[in-house]
Amino acid sequence: MSEPWEDDELDGPVRKFMYVNRRAPYGTIYALESLEVVLIAAAFEQDVSLVFMDDGVYQIKKGQNTEAIGVKNFSPTYRALEGYDVEKLYVEKESLESRGLTADDLVVPVQVVDRNQLAELMEEQEVILSF
C-alpha cells in the first residue's frame, strides 16, 4: 500500500527523537497532527519517546466522548503505538497531579516522571518536536 511520497530513504544514523505533547486533544489540531507525525516516524526506526505534559495529559485520558463536539475521538489510536514499537511514553507527574489525575486514568501504560527527571530525559535527546 505504498504511496509515491512514502518512498523515503531509511539511511542515516538512529537518533533520539522526542515528541512533546502539551495541548488538550480537542480545541486545536496540534494533538491529532502530532500523533500523525509519530505514526509516520515509527517507520524510520528511530529511538522514539513521547511526553505528555500540561494539558497534553488529557490526550490519553480514558473515557473520552467527543460526540457532542462532532470531532473524531482519536484516543484509541494511542493504544496502537505499542504495535509500532513506540513504547517509551512519559507523563509529567506535576501535570497529572494538578489536574487530579493518576496513571490509572490513562488509556496506555506510561512512565510517570517528575519535572526534573523530564528535564534530564530532554537533555539526552537529539531532536525534540513540541506540539
Binding site: E6, D8, P13, V37
Partner: peptide
C-alpha cells in the same frame, strides 16, 4: 510526506 520531516531530523 511527513517522512521528509523525519529525514530532516535525522
Amino acid at each position: 510526506g511527513l517522512g521528509q520531516l523525519i529525514e530532516a531530523g535525522i
